[in-house]
Design a protein around this nucleic acid. Structure first.
Lengths: 124, 124
DNA sequence: TAAAACCATGGAGTAGAGTCAATGGTTTTG
DNA sequence: CAAAACCATTGACTCTACTCCATGGTTTTA
């Protein structure tokens, strides 16, 4: 699949895909046509990218993702302390979830406070 | 309370506090001593900052926070469509929580896969 | 087959959120 | 009282994660 198709599939811009590839988050195969040098992405790229966008939305950095994906596919767990790394990121995500829930609660309270006050001013 | 105390209390650097103040997220009172121009923060500043750091950790931008805090304290709900704004941010936070949970699951799986494989290689 | 649409590379530019350093006042402390 | 610790301002700097642009080759389409 070429970059435009993958972009359409994932909602990520071509530039972002090229950027992610340069960062080592995704890989493309050598072009199928030798006449051009178009990137040729494996069909399952969009699943990998879904994982990546999830993790990014959750606040993991590109560096974190590179480390993780690298380890996961190479099964290489001895290079450095993957265990500690995972524990750290897990703790971080738990913290993000907790803070997001607190903040969410606050926003919902604010919204309902507004609705209340609206009803006061405009009964019926 | 002076900036150093607030910094110690919140874990935010003095620079960050000054930066937040310039951005309009927090306010300081005029200095108590007229001989200096030290910032003089109200005692409840740390609670406000706790809310701010939560929201930041959850992915809300400083701009968002400025808008929110402004509205909340002025009760000014007519200036622009606060309702739509709140709905947007709420949806955003729900999305963040969902993606963080998916990502968290992935990391936990990875960790337990490692633990498994460790037990295979080093039984007893 | 020519225009439109797609792709590549390299490098510059941007936005957001701090962070740091220089310089110079004020307070606290031993 | 002198040194250490604290504070202020300004402006430059960093880092992350894109995003845009210029230039030029390739494919698709009307």
């Amino acid at each position: 699949m070429r970059i435009g198709a993958l972009s359409a599939l994932t909602g990520l811009s071509r530039d972002t895909l090229r950027f992610y590839e340069k960062q080592g988050l995704i890989r493309s195969l050598p072009s199928s046509e030798p006449s051009n040098s178009y990137r040729n992405y494996p069909e399952d790229s969009s699943e990998r990218l879904r994982m990546i966008t999830d993790a990014r939305a959750a606040g993991l950095s590109i560096g974190d993702l590179k480390t993780l994906l690298n380890c996961m596919e190479s099964g290489d767990l001895s290079t450095f302390d993957l265990d500690a790394f995972l524990d750290e990121r897990i703790a971080h995500l738990e913290h993000v979830i907790a803070t997001a829930q607190r903040t969410l609660g606050m926003l919902r309270d604010t919204r309902s406070a507004i609705t209340m006050s609206d009803q006061l001013h405009i009964p019926e």
